[in-house]
């Protein structure tokens, strides 16, 4: 009997490669200047899911992502690497969500999609570095959680065993399924795209994407239902409007500032013997060193 696994994956702006044009003059972020990528630790999470799938015959891996229409790219990317299917949770009602509103929507979507044995998330998303959504989803679903996973050792007989990497050590823990697991960047890297799967899934589309593009493959989508990426909305998941988007977000951004250093008055020195000698004398005399 296989496992039902869902991977929560997010499309994020690549904040690791922020160039000069990424910040607008008013101090806000120019999202358009940043490429959108698969959140790095979500790829580590996907790899853990795919390993479970290989280990336990009959398992399925489903990707769930919440975001704008273009986040369907994350689901296709997941399929190229081995996921079976995916759901895009998208609705204007989600705009302005903080981590709590995001977790609420994701947890309702998980309940809507079905029952899962393992829910795998990345530890944190690089656009916010909060690492909150995993544990918050777990709490909302009233499930236990195992954070900072480096290796899901086994998931059988209703029990999951996980090695966790902590700041100052390692722990092996076990707990009952269903379980929420968040995966660290120290876990193995995700396998690359598989060429055969790339051919198989490159036409996978959400209904909105199909309506927007002119290519007319109606027959293909009815013949090959796995090419339909399901799009779900606030209505589908029966979300309570008060808990979604901006109104469901207790935290508000009050101000955003670009960072400017206060220039100090500094002494400028060259590298001559005399200058370095003077400097060391000064540091010794004023008891900074020595």
């Amino acid at each position: 009997m296989g496992l039902k696994i869902v991977v929560l994956a997010k499309q994020v702006p690549d904040t690791r490669n922020v160039g000069k044009d990424a910040m607008k003059a008013d101090g806000t972020v120019n999202r358009a200047a940043l490429p959108a990528i698969f959140n790095p630790e979500d790829l580590n999470a996907l790899e853990q899911a795919l390993r479970l799938k290989e280990k336990y015959e009959g398992s399925t891996v489903t990707i769930l992502t919440m975001g704008p229409g273009r986040a369907a790219e994350i689901i296709r990317e997941g399929m190229y690497r081995g996921a079976d299917n995916g759901f895009l949770l998208t609705d204007r009602a989600f705009a302005g969500s903080d981590t709590l509103a995001t977790s609420y929507a994701l947890s309702k979507a998980i309940e809507y999609i079905g029952k899962f044995d393992v829910i795998v998330c990345g530890r944190q998303a690089i656009d916010g570095d909060t690492a909150q959504v995993g544990p918050q989803v777990a709490e909302k679903l009233n499930l236990p959680q195992i954070t900072y996973a480096e290796n899901i050792v086994s998931a059988e007989n209703g029990k999951i065993v996980v090695v966790r990497r902590l700041e100052r050590g390692v722990e092996t823990v076990s707990g009952p399924m269903p379980m929420v697991v968040t995966v660290n960047s120290t876990a193995p890297e995700c396998r690359p795209r598989n060429a055969r799967r790339l051919m198989q899934f490159k036409h996978a589309r959400t209904i909105t994407e199909r309506q927007e593009s002119n290519d007319d493959y109606v027959a293909m989508y009815s013949e090959r239902p796995y090419l339909n990426i399901q799009e779900i909305t606030a209505l589908d998941i029966k979300g309570d409007a008060a808990q979604l988007g901006l109104s469901g977000s207790p935290t508000k951004v009050k101000t955003i500032e670009n960072i400017v250093f206060q220039a100090k008055e500094s002494k400028i020195l060259g590298t001559s013997d005399d200058e370095i000698d003077e400097l060391m004398k000064e540091l010794i005399t004023n008891h900074t060193i020595g």
């Binding site: 903080d98 981590t99 709590l100 977790s103 916010g128 570095d129 909060t130 690492a131 909150q132 959504v133 995993g134 544990p135 918050q136 777990a138 709490e139 909302k140 959680q145 954070t147 900072y148 902590l166 700041e167 100052r168 977000s249 207790p250 935290t251």
Partner: peptide, 23 residues
């Protein structure tokens, strides 16, 4: 904002619907 605090904080804030700012 340690291994423990970042495991515990979100869970507590989710239950209390209180919001949490990390780091």
């Amino acid at each position: 904002a340690s291994s423990i605090g970042r495991d515990l904080g979100p869970r507590v804030s989710s239950a209390l619907h209180s919001g949490l700012t990390a780091d």
